[in-house]
Design a protein around this nucleic acid. Sequence first.
DNA 1: CTGTTAGCGCCTTCAG
DNA 2: CTGAAGGCGCTAACAG
Lengths: 345, 345
Amino acid sequence: MNTNITLRDIAKALNLSISTVSRALTDSYQIGEKTKQEVLAYAKEHHYVPNRMARGLKEGKSRSIGVVVCSIDNNFMAQMLDGIDQYCSEHDYQLIMMQSKELFEQEKANVNLLYAGGIDGLLICPSYQTTDFSYLINLQESGLPVVLFDRLSNHIDTHKVAVDNFKGAYEATQHLINNGYHAIAHLNWNTQLSTATERFEGYKKALKDAGIPFNNDWVKFCDTSNAATLDEELETAIGELMALKQVPRAIFTATDLLSTKCLEILRKCGHRIPEDIALVGFSNTDLAEVLNPSLSTIRQPSLEIGRLAAKQLLSLISDRRATEHFETILLPTELQVRASSQKSK
Amino acid sequence: MNTNITLRDIAKALNLSISTVSRALTDSYQIGEKTKQEVLAYAKEHHYVPNRMARGLKEGKSRSIGVVVCSIDNNFMAQMLDGIDQYCSEHDYQLIMMQSKELFEQEKANVNLLYAGGIDGLLICPSYQTTDFSYLINLQESGLPVVLFDRLSNHIDTHKVAVDNFKGAYEATQHLINNGYHAIAHLNWNTQLSTATERFEGYKKALKDAGIPFNNDWVKFCDTSNAATLDEELETAIGELMALKQVPRAIFTATDLLSTKCLEILRKCGHRIPEDIALVGFSNTDLAEVLNPSLSTIRQPSLEIGRLAAKQLLSLISDRRATEHFETILLPTELQVRASSQKSK
DNA sequence: CTGTTAGCGCCTTCAG
DNA sequence: CTGAAGGCGCTAACAG
């Protein structure tokens, strides 16, 4: 704990009362200009800075928000955190971060700890296991502003910020179709979260609009939360796809990790991309251009998601009446075409 | 702010005094077993959790630490943060994160804000601009435990955790030499931080030990902090290298960003890797294997750096006498050989 | 315009 | 073994 000077120190030194000093530092009215300047000068000279905990205790708020993410060790998440941090810094809010590591129990524990710690609001990207949002709803009802980002759910009513996953997936699939690929497989992950389901829906809709019948054999769901088993699981999935009577000529992968892993495994198994099989994935890696082959991606405005989520939360904190009309913001994705989805010959 | 129940609520409900309840929840002695159980049961049932700010104010500590990083939007940093978070979670410390964005002034502002907020300790990876550590030393002298990680400096005496950059660079260079490359260029960044200088020294020593004369034309320093100008700067640097009379046959790049960017630019300019020019870089990207060509890297134990740094800090916090013997921990790097540095023919 | 007072929730003497 | 009282640093009535 720090040993900063306090209001009392200033008061004593200047022969004033504590509250006068306090006013000089916060109010602008109800204080003599001269004493105010004196206090300000002394405070500055001695690097006075208010004790956040004392102020928090008094005011019932801490000017800090909690952020619970599934895992920080992930490009896309780091970019969103960057955006969150930007907005919070600009508005003098501190950011307390915790990871759920995709575990529901861990997530609950984190949230409770943050709540106990006195955060003014919570930003959360739920774990892939999370289907029960009642614990969040409870906190929300006891007055904690909550904003969901990236991964949304209909089970809780609040501000939400993410991208238009349906449209992004639709465009990815459409792009493949336009480039001559009709037999398009789809790799997704086994969760109930909107990110997954909507991308699946977008994929199906694009096929339908192009008059391509949906083939359930072409769709595989993997457990991306377990790094240890993912490689094997993916290898099996891809193996099964390539062994089908009607072999797919392209794959649309629904997550960042699946996209790069899939590229890796396809190459490892000797499949040429895009000659044997084309690939378009959701990914925010900065290295898409340098991959082998360069990877066509659906890119999400990660920084903006973070900034907006933080903005929504802070507005909720400063004006609780905003509770009346929650909104869901869906930002557009961007299709970046590269070698992995080049026109079929 | 939350509306949790307080000691007073419990006291009132159980017809006890606040201090008795407090004791039941903290002490183990000086309290009747029966009342203790009563209190514990009631507290549990009503999800009592102590108000962190009140306790912090009282005890003069917050059970939170500040972490100032240059930028979170970076694989390697995210991995270290992951490690820090792991250790802190395990020991019930909260983690308040801020970014300096490689700006010294920003870094100072962040640290001061964190200090004012009542952190119990500070973990910092200094900005590349930072050469003046006096502001940190001041805080340290007023009692704030500080631990440096990743980027170290001799200008401040405290616990430090990073990798053995000298050795890592030495091994990278030696590896190139062993594979038949003798004309080895070196790309580094323009900072005084240890990460840069030691890698440069390791490079020079490896050349020397192999009897290869050091050639200053082969060394370029770039400003990696400015994403906008880096591409151009790197392109120029590489252009100059390739236009030398004695054209280098390999490059050893000293940072993560330089390594992948360099690969990108070499390819863009039509240089074949490793046929025209080989490449080994410091990088922690998980995609090294899937790059084109796959990138030989010096990998750092990022998670472990984070965990150890956090551990050192917490030990400093709990035992200030530890101040007497500060230590610098240098973890080993790992050379991962891939296509970009294959044997010269 | 300024000082006094009370209290945020918790812990810790000091008395019973 | 338990209760009462004081104070951490700050803000916000309430009085002058």
